[in-house]
Computed example of a mutant assay.
Amino acid sequence: MDEQEQSTAIRVEALSAPLQVQAQAWAQRLGLPLEDDQAGFAVQVSGDGLQVQQLGPQAPGPVRVDFVEGQAAHRRLFGGGSGQMIAKAVGIAQGIRPTVLDATAGLGKDAFVLASLGCSMTLIERQPLIAALLEDGLSRARLVAEVAPIVERMRLLTGNAIEHMQHWQGEAPQVIYLDPMFPHRDKSALVKKEMRVFRPLVGDDQDAPALLAAALALATHRVVVKRPRKAPIIEGAKPSHSIDGKSSRYDIYPKKTLKA
Protein backbone atom coordinates (compact mmCIF):
# COMPACT_ATOMS: atom_id res chain seq x y z
CA MET A 1 0.00 0.00 0.00
CA ASP A 2 1.56 3.31 -1.04
CA GLU A 3 1.40 6.50 1.02
CA GLN A 4 -1.59 7.93 -0.83
CA GLU A 5 -3.61 4.72 -0.50
CA GLN A 6 -2.68 4.45 3.14
CA SER A 7 -3.80 7.99 3.89
CA THR A 8 -7.30 7.41 2.49
CA ALA A 9 -7.91 3.90 3.83
CA ILE A 10 -11.04 3.79 6.01
CA ARG A 11 -12.19 1.57 8.85
CA VAL A 12 -15.41 1.40 10.86
CA GLU A 13 -15.35 1.42 14.65
CA ALA A 14 -17.75 1.64 17.58
CA LEU A 15 -16.89 4.16 20.30
CA SER A 16 -18.54 2.00 22.96
CA ALA A 17 -19.24 -1.71 23.29
CA PRO A 18 -23.07 -1.43 23.05
CA LEU A 19 -22.67 0.16 19.60
CA GLN A 20 -20.61 -2.69 18.16
CA VAL A 21 -23.61 -4.30 16.41
CA GLN A 22 -24.40 -1.00 14.68
CA ALA A 23 -20.76 -0.67 13.66
CA GLN A 24 -20.81 -4.15 12.14
CA ALA A 25 -23.96 -3.26 10.19
CA TRP A 26 -22.42 -0.07 8.81
CA ALA A 27 -19.20 -1.88 7.93
CA GLN A 28 -21.18 -4.41 5.93
CA ARG A 29 -23.26 -1.73 4.20
CA LEU A 30 -20.25 0.39 3.30
CA GLY A 31 -17.97 -2.51 2.42
CA LEU A 32 -15.34 -1.38 4.93
CA PRO A 33 -13.27 -3.31 7.50
CA LEU A 34 -13.81 -3.09 11.24
CA GLU A 35 -10.08 -3.30 11.88
CA ASP A 36 -7.31 -1.68 9.85
CA ASP A 37 -4.20 -0.35 11.58
CA GLN A 38 -3.19 1.47 8.39
CA ALA A 39 -6.44 3.44 8.06
CA GLY A 40 -6.20 7.20 7.76
CA PHE A 41 -9.92 7.67 8.48
CA ALA A 42 -12.52 6.03 10.69
CA VAL A 43 -16.29 5.89 10.34
CA GLN A 44 -17.27 5.99 13.99
CA VAL A 45 -20.57 4.91 15.52
CA SER A 46 -21.00 7.17 18.54
CA GLY A 47 -23.74 8.06 20.97
CA ASP A 48 -24.20 11.30 19.03
CA GLY A 49 -24.61 9.53 15.68
CA LEU A 50 -22.45 8.44 12.79
CA GLN A 51 -19.29 10.48 12.23
CA VAL A 52 -16.09 10.46 10.19
CA GLN A 53 -12.83 11.06 12.02
CA GLN A 54 -9.49 11.67 10.34
CA LEU A 55 -6.86 9.74 12.27
CA GLY A 56 -3.38 10.72 13.32
CA PRO A 57 -1.77 13.74 14.99
CA GLN A 58 -3.17 17.23 14.30
CA ALA A 59 -6.32 15.77 12.74
CA PRO A 60 -9.44 17.94 13.09
CA GLY A 61 -12.37 16.73 15.15
CA PRO A 62 -15.08 14.40 13.86
CA VAL A 63 -17.54 15.41 11.14
CA ARG A 64 -21.18 14.45 11.45
CA VAL A 65 -24.49 15.74 10.10
CA ASP A 66 -26.45 17.62 12.76
CA PHE A 67 -29.67 19.36 11.71
CA VAL A 68 -30.80 19.93 15.31
CA GLU A 69 -28.06 21.88 17.09
CA GLY A 70 -24.97 23.93 16.31
CA GLN A 71 -24.61 25.75 13.00
CA ALA A 72 -27.85 24.37 11.52
CA ALA A 73 -29.90 25.59 14.49
CA HIS A 74 -28.26 29.01 14.49
CA ARG A 75 -28.84 29.46 10.77
CA ARG A 76 -32.44 28.24 11.06
CA LEU A 77 -33.21 30.71 13.85
CA PHE A 78 -31.01 33.68 12.94
CA GLY A 79 -29.85 33.14 9.34
CA GLY A 80 -31.93 35.81 7.71
CA GLY A 81 -34.82 33.75 6.35
CA SER A 82 -35.83 34.42 2.77
CA GLY A 83 -33.38 37.33 2.63
CA GLN A 84 -30.42 34.96 2.44
CA MET A 85 -28.45 34.88 -0.82
CA ILE A 86 -29.23 31.21 -1.41
CA ALA A 87 -32.95 31.90 -1.01
CA LYS A 88 -32.79 34.69 -3.58
CA ALA A 89 -30.68 32.52 -5.89
CA VAL A 90 -33.19 29.66 -6.07
CA GLY A 91 -36.07 32.11 -6.52
CA ILE A 92 -37.78 32.10 -3.13
CA ALA A 93 -40.17 35.05 -2.94
CA GLN A 94 -43.60 35.87 -1.55
CA GLY A 95 -45.84 32.94 -2.45
CA ILE A 96 -43.02 31.12 -4.27
CA ARG A 97 -41.37 28.03 -2.78
CA PRO A 98 -39.92 26.06 -5.71
CA THR A 99 -39.24 22.34 -5.73
CA VAL A 100 -35.46 22.02 -5.62
CA LEU A 101 -33.02 19.23 -6.47
CA ASP A 102 -29.69 19.61 -4.68
CA ALA A 103 -27.60 17.37 -6.92
CA THR A 104 -24.37 17.78 -4.89
CA ALA A 105 -25.84 17.47 -1.41
CA GLY A 106 -22.66 17.08 0.65
CA LEU A 107 -23.53 17.37 4.33
CA GLY A 108 -26.95 18.82 3.48
CA LYS A 109 -26.42 22.28 4.97
CA ASP A 110 -27.78 24.29 2.05
CA ALA A 111 -30.63 21.82 1.44
CA PHE A 112 -31.67 22.12 5.09
CA VAL A 113 -31.75 25.92 4.83
CA LEU A 114 -34.01 25.74 1.77
CA ALA A 115 -36.22 23.09 3.41
CA SER A 116 -36.52 25.27 6.51
CA LEU A 117 -37.79 28.06 4.25
CA GLY A 118 -40.49 25.77 2.86
CA CYS A 119 -38.95 24.25 -0.27
CA SER A 120 -39.54 20.60 -1.13
CA MET A 121 -36.04 19.18 -1.49
CA THR A 122 -34.50 16.16 -3.18
CA LEU A 123 -30.85 15.54 -2.32
CA ILE A 124 -28.40 13.44 -4.31
CA GLU A 125 -25.05 12.39 -2.83
CA ARG A 126 -22.76 10.00 -4.67
CA GLN A 127 -20.00 9.54 -2.08
CA PRO A 128 -21.21 6.60 0.05
CA LEU A 129 -19.64 7.86 3.30
CA ILE A 130 -21.22 11.28 3.02
CA ALA A 131 -24.54 9.73 2.01
CA ALA A 132 -24.36 7.56 5.14
CA LEU A 133 -23.76 10.63 7.33
CA LEU A 134 -26.72 12.35 5.67
CA GLU A 135 -28.99 9.36 6.16
CA ASP A 136 -28.01 9.16 9.83
CA GLY A 137 -28.48 12.90 10.37
CA LEU A 138 -31.92 12.88 8.76
CA SER A 139 -32.99 9.89 10.86
CA ARG A 140 -31.95 11.57 14.11
CA ALA A 141 -33.58 14.87 13.12
CA ARG A 142 -36.92 13.15 12.49
CA LEU A 143 -37.05 12.33 16.21
CA VAL A 144 -36.92 15.99 17.25
CA ALA A 145 -40.26 17.78 17.11
CA GLU A 146 -38.98 21.23 16.13
CA VAL A 147 -37.04 20.06 13.06
CA ALA A 148 -39.00 16.94 12.05
CA PRO A 149 -41.36 18.93 9.74
CA ILE A 150 -38.32 20.43 7.99
CA VAL A 151 -36.48 17.18 7.29
CA GLU A 152 -39.72 15.59 6.12
CA ARG A 153 -39.33 17.93 3.14
CA MET A 154 -35.89 16.39 2.39
CA ARG A 155 -35.68 13.20 0.29
CA LEU A 156 -32.26 11.56 -0.08
CA LEU A 157 -31.08 9.69 -3.17
CA THR A 158 -27.67 8.07 -3.45
CA GLY A 159 -25.54 7.44 -6.50
CA ASN A 160 -24.38 9.38 -9.54
CA ALA A 161 -26.29 12.65 -9.91
CA ILE A 162 -25.81 12.82 -13.68
CA GLU A 163 -27.36 9.37 -14.12
CA HIS A 164 -30.22 10.23 -11.74
CA MET A 165 -30.97 13.39 -13.73
CA GLN A 166 -30.73 11.70 -17.11
CA HIS A 167 -33.16 8.98 -16.00
CA TRP A 168 -35.41 11.10 -13.80
CA GLN A 169 -38.67 9.53 -12.68
CA GLY A 170 -41.69 11.68 -11.92
CA GLU A 171 -42.19 15.43 -12.05
CA ALA A 172 -39.02 17.37 -12.86
CA PRO A 173 -37.68 19.79 -10.23
CA GLN A 174 -38.27 23.48 -10.87
CA VAL A 175 -34.78 24.42 -9.67
CA ILE A 176 -31.55 22.40 -9.61
CA TYR A 177 -28.81 23.53 -7.22
CA LEU A 178 -25.16 22.57 -7.75
CA ASP A 179 -22.17 23.13 -5.48
CA PRO A 180 -19.41 21.00 -7.04
CA MET A 181 -15.99 20.37 -5.53
CA PHE A 182 -13.57 22.05 -7.90
CA PRO A 183 -9.79 21.94 -8.45
CA HIS A 184 -9.82 25.70 -7.85
CA ARG A 185 -8.25 26.10 -4.42
CA ASP A 186 -10.11 28.56 -2.23
CA LYS A 187 -7.92 28.97 0.85
CA SER A 188 -10.76 30.18 3.05
CA ALA A 189 -12.78 27.05 2.23
CA LEU A 190 -9.89 24.63 2.69
CA VAL A 191 -9.39 25.54 6.32
CA LYS A 192 -12.87 24.33 7.17
CA LYS A 193 -12.85 21.05 9.05
CA GLU A 194 -15.26 19.35 6.64
CA MET A 195 -13.08 20.25 3.65
CA ARG A 196 -9.92 19.02 5.34
CA VAL A 197 -11.56 15.69 6.12
CA PHE A 198 -13.45 15.08 2.90
CA ARG A 199 -11.29 16.43 0.08
CA PRO A 200 -8.83 13.47 0.32
CA LEU A 201 -11.81 11.06 0.25
CA VAL A 202 -14.04 12.79 -2.29
CA GLY A 203 -11.62 14.56 -4.61
CA ASP A 204 -12.81 17.07 -7.17
CA ASP A 205 -15.90 16.94 -9.38
CA GLN A 206 -14.09 16.66 -12.70
CA ASP A 207 -17.45 16.04 -14.40
CA ALA A 208 -18.90 19.42 -13.40
CA PRO A 209 -19.57 20.46 -17.05
CA ALA A 210 -21.59 17.26 -17.61
CA LEU A 211 -23.35 17.83 -14.28
CA LEU A 212 -24.36 21.33 -15.40
CA ALA A 213 -25.53 20.09 -18.80
CA ALA A 214 -27.70 17.37 -17.20
CA ALA A 215 -29.16 19.90 -14.77
CA LEU A 216 -30.02 22.35 -17.56
CA ALA A 217 -31.75 19.55 -19.46
CA LEU A 218 -33.91 18.55 -16.46
CA ALA A 219 -34.75 21.70 -14.48
CA THR A 220 -37.98 23.35 -15.57
CA HIS A 221 -37.23 26.89 -14.34
CA ARG A 222 -33.60 27.50 -13.41
CA VAL A 223 -30.23 26.05 -12.44
CA VAL A 224 -28.12 27.64 -9.69
CA VAL A 225 -24.40 26.96 -9.26
CA LYS A 226 -22.60 27.97 -6.06
CA ARG A 227 -18.94 28.87 -6.60
CA PRO A 228 -16.10 30.46 -4.65
CA ARG A 229 -16.40 34.18 -5.44
CA LYS A 230 -13.31 34.40 -7.66
CA ALA A 231 -13.54 30.95 -9.25
CA PRO A 232 -14.21 30.56 -12.99
CA ILE A 233 -17.68 29.60 -14.20
CA ILE A 234 -18.26 25.97 -15.10
CA GLU A 235 -17.38 25.21 -18.71
CA GLY A 236 -20.42 25.14 -20.97
CA ALA A 237 -23.50 27.35 -20.93
CA LYS A 238 -23.03 30.84 -19.54
CA PRO A 239 -25.06 32.14 -16.59
CA SER A 240 -27.31 35.16 -17.17
CA HIS A 241 -26.17 36.80 -13.93
CA SER A 242 -24.66 36.12 -10.52
CA ILE A 243 -25.41 37.00 -6.92
CA ASP A 244 -22.14 37.83 -5.16
CA GLY A 245 -21.28 37.50 -1.49
CA LYS A 246 -18.05 37.98 0.45
CA SER A 247 -16.64 34.52 -0.24
CA SER A 248 -19.16 32.83 -2.54
CA ARG A 249 -21.35 33.65 -5.49
CA TYR A 250 -24.39 32.04 -7.11
CA ASP A 251 -24.40 31.75 -10.90
CA ILE A 252 -27.98 31.78 -12.23
CA TYR A 253 -29.04 29.93 -15.38
CA PRO A 254 -32.70 30.86 -15.98
CA LYS A 255 -35.10 28.87 -18.18
CA LYS A 256 -38.53 30.12 -17.14
CA THR A 257 -39.92 32.62 -14.64
CA LEU A 258 -41.02 31.21 -11.29
CA LYS A 259 -44.57 32.26 -10.44
CA ALA A 260 -46.67 32.09 -7.29
Rank of each mutant, 00 (worst) to 15 (best):
S247D: 13
M121I: 15
G236V: 12
R199F: 04
T158I: 10
G91C: 06
K88P: 05
L212N: 02
F41Q: 00
I86D: 08
A148H: 05
G40K: 10
A189F: 12
P200V: 01
F41T: 01
G245C: 14
Q54D: 03
A217G: 13
A213P: 02
I176S: 11
H74Y: 12
A23Q: 03
S16L: 06
L77S: 04
G70F: 06
A111G: 13
F41L: 08
Q58M: 12
L218Y: 06
V45F: 01
P62T: 07
I233N: 15
A237P: 15
Q71N: 13
L178A: 08
K246R: 14
S82A: 09
V191D: 00
R249S: 15
F67M: 08
V197L: 03
P200I: 02
V191C: 04
L34R: 01
P209H: 06
A42C: 06
M165G: 03
M195V: 14
L129H: 11
W168C: 10
G170L: 11
I10Q: 00
V113Q: 09
G79P: 03
Q58H: 13
V202Q: 06
G70R: 01
L32R: 04
V224K: 04
R185S: 08
K246S: 13
A208W: 04
R155I: 04
A103L: 04
Q28A: 08
A14E: 03
E5G: 07
R185N: 10
A39W: 02
A72P: 09
Q174C: 07
Q174N: 07
T122F: 12
D251M: 14
M195D: 12
T257I: 15
L178K: 08
P149F: 02
A132W: 12
Q6K: 09
R222G: 07
I252N: 06
I233T: 15
A59Q: 00
Q206S: 14
Q174L: 05
A27W: 00
P173R: 13
G40N: 00
Q6N: 08
K192P: 05
V225T: 13
K109R: 15
H167T: 13
A111C: 13
K255R: 13
A231S: 12
G203H: 02
W168Y: 11
E35Q: 05
G118M: 06
R155S: 05
D244R: 15
Q44E: 00
V100M: 01
A214P: 04
P209Y: 09
E35S: 01
A189L: 14
S82E: 06
H241V: 14
V144Y: 11
Q44V: 09
P232N: 11
Q44M: 08
A25I: 03
G170R: 11
P254C: 11
P239Q: 11
A148T: 00
H164V: 07
